[in-house]
């Protein structure tokens, strides 16, 4: 075998190895990098059983109940189709708010309550000054009032 052929063979071997590595990475993405499950998936038993996972969705408006005297908080995570109640003890991120995105890590109890060990806020990709946000809020409320009065 000439040196040139041997080098070519090494390049092929290297490429094959890299291809396998890429395939492994892609597979890891598909099976393990589902960062969170939606409440609908959790209700449909698609979330992993017996090990901690993350649940993601919106904090249902009016569902936050703070314990007096401790850092325990209860709220409901919703994807507007299904809801999952969550309890958590600890500090919440600044952006944790009703109607906003949330990702909580923990385990699902047999009673259907998700016991979170970590709560992260998931914000959207919109950036605007407070006045603009207030105007949108106002317009939204106005629209709702109109549909209600009709």
């Amino acid at each position: 075998m000439k040196a040139r052929h041997r080098r070519f063979a090494w390049i092929l071997v290297g490429l094959a190895a890299l291809g396998v590595a890429v395939a492994l990475v892609l597979n890891a993405f598909r099976s393990h990098l589902v960062f969170f499950f939606s409440p609908s998936q959790v209700i449909a038993n698609e979330a992993p059983v017996g090990r901690p996972f993350r649940i993601g969705g919106l904090v249902q408006v009016g569902s936050i109940v703070r314990d007096t005297g401790s850092l325990t908080v209860r709220f409901v995570v919703t994807d507007t189709a299904k809801d999952v109640p969550v309890t958590y003890t600890g500090l919440l991120p600044d952006l944790f708010k009703e109607g906003k995105g949330v990702v909580a890590q923990g385990t699902l109890g047999p009673d259907g309550v998700f016991r979170a060990t970590e709560v992260l806020a998931k914000h959207d990709e919109n950036y605007m000054p407070p006045e603009a946000a207030a105007a949108i809020e106002q317009a939204h409320k106005g629209g709702q009032a109109k549909t209600l009065s009709r």
Binding site: F36, G56, K122, D124
Partner: peptide
Amino acid sequence: WNTLHQGAS
């Protein structure tokens, strides 16, 4: 995928 990171602005 479902990510913590928000979508593109």
